[in-house]
Simulated scan of single mutants.
Amino acid sequence: MKKKIEVACAIIEREGRVLAAQRAESMSLPLKWEFPGGKIEPLEDARDCLHRELREELGVGVHIHAALPPSDWSYADFAITLHPFVCTLGEGSIHLAEHKAIRWVSPEEMPSLDWAAADGPVLENYFRYLKQGQAGA
């Protein structure tokens, strides 16, 4: 049976762009792009995990505005459930503790990045979320 991990991730918006983080060469899925976040600890709430992980990985706090549907993905050696949250930056300034690079990208640019496969369904749900927001505007 595959190892299953639960991960909280942040879709951080700023001025019409979204923060994408590139995994370091030493990480699994090296150099793939992802939404920053991390593993949910036992008995930890996904929102609490997100706040903790973003302070550890990027040195920032965030304001969570919406939760998107969780998405499941199965890699060859493990399965993952991503719990994505749409956020804006709070306190702190970004510094990279684990990632190789970050980029602020427009939604139109997002498909051109080499994303980790598990982030594909998250991107689809985010684009649906954006369309619903525009329809309600």
Rank of each mutant, 00 (worst) to 15 (best):
G61S: 12
E41P: 11
V122N: 00
K2W: 05
S71H: 10
A24D: 14
G16W: 07
L96I: 14
K32H: 11
G38A: 14
Y75C: 02
W104A: 12
K100I: 05
I5A: 09
S93V: 15
C87V: 08
P111E: 06
H51W: 01
T81F: 02
D72W: 05
A46W: 05
P42Y: 09
V18L: 04
Y129G: 07
D72A: 06
P42N: 05
K2C: 00
C87H: 07
R14E: 12
D114I: 10
G90I: 06
S74F: 09
A24L: 08
H99I: 09
I94R: 12
P107F: 03
G61Y: 03
L50K: 02
A79M: 11
I64V: 10
D114A: 14
G61H: 05
Q132D: 11
K39T: 15
K3S: 07
L96Q: 14
M110K: 06
Y129L: 07
E15I: 06
P69Q: 02
A20V: 10
A79K: 09
Q134I: 01
R103F: 15
C87E: 09
L68F: 01
I12W: 02
E13A: 12
L29W: 02
T81L: 03
G59P: 02
I94S: 12
I5S: 11
S112C: 10
A8M: 00
E6W: 09
L54Q: 06
L50G: 02
S71Q: 13
P69V: 00
E53D: 11
P42F: 10
